[in-house]
Design a protein around this nucleic acid. Sequence first.
DNA 1: CCATAACGAAACGATACGTTTCGTTATGGA
DNA 2: TCCATAACGAAACGTATCGTTTCGTTATGG
Lengths: 200, 200
Amino acid sequence: MTTGDAEPQTRRASIGARRNPASQAAILSAARAVLAEEGYGGFSIDAVSRRAGAGKPTVYRWWKTRADLLMDVYAAEKAALTVPITADLARDLTVYTEALWDFWDETPSGRTFRALVAEAQDSPEALDTLRDKFMPERTRLLRERFVKAVERGQIVAAEIEMRLVLYLGFSWYYVLTDRLAEGRAAIAPAMRLIAAPSLR
Amino acid sequence: MTTGDAEPQTRRASIGARRNPASQAAILSAARAVLAEEGYGGFSIDAVSRRAGAGKPTVYRWWKTRADLLMDVYAAEKAALTVPITADLARDLTVYTEALWDFWDETPSGRTFRALVAEAQDSPEALDTLRDKFMPERTRLLRERFVKAVERGQIVAAEIEMRLVLYLGFSWYYVLTDRLAEGRAAIAPAMRLIAAPSLR
DNA sequence: CCATAACGAAACGATACGTTTCGTTATGGA
DNA sequence: TCCATAACGAAACGTATCGTTTCGTTATGG
């Protein structure tokens, strides 16, 4: 109860032979709160279900694995983040990255993201989820911006993947070492390098 | 016993009122084998001590935390990796990175590295160890190469940190998503970008 | 009206945590 | 030579979490 996510005292009884969305919402909210307060180390299904006032079977009914729950916690923040789209790729990337890092800082999402990456090292299934579902969804707009830059003739198509990974790795490194604040000043110059015109 | 790291059947009894280095060696070897075969998910102190034929107190006597043990497992591989030093930074980085990725692929070190990063998301102490001890040791030679490039007037000093993080993030992304094989072709062009001359 | 299914609670048997207790071993200073 | 000392492996400690099962309760929807 140290955050505003106080769960109701009243028991959430059955509403009949169908799933209760209120249970799903309570669990998501509890998961968010646990991550914010305890980080990945304190994130257990037991802790989440306790805090949500839900039974563990209810948690597993809605989410098969911890990774699935983490992904939904991340998605639930529904950040109003879009990648700007001008003719200046470096500038667009800089604006987006600064907003993303703010988002990671000001919500539990940074910790959720770190938890997802950690979870992916624990289980191959979680890694597949991260690689084949989470990342593609989250990098779609970003990739489009690189495609546009190709169409403008600024960079070559064969380098899209390489530049995208340079971009992602840069943010991953800072968030995974919990040094977002220290890396702030490096964003703009890094984006200029990542968006630099292909030579020759 | 599915690797060559078979542990002795003979019990390692006390050798008196002092630590037995054979126990340390057996535990390191067992930790290496567990990581290679089970990955981070199967890496527990129980599993390691069982495999080493050692008591858990012996493990904790030599290593305070799992992160400390993981760091020693990584260090024990003592890769014969050095960063070449010519006037061509991009080429030096490419040669080094390809060797590093081979090393990560051919030894349990890739998995050990992934385990370390995951462990750092679990505990703040492990993160400190990774950030303040492990990474500085592992990136010393790398940083020196960037310094040399500055001395040659190829890049500006203020960009060293930014370029180093671009470099590290690139490898982190591929190893943490278990996609080293797929990223191989991107190494050389990425290194050319990271080592590109500072403009103006 | 009643078969159905989700609900919270509690307990299950495993496994891992980090620590303690035990009997055994052999050192190294008195 | 003797003996306090400390590390050894083994086993057990109490606690926590895993994913599952069992239970009585609830209220739907065919």
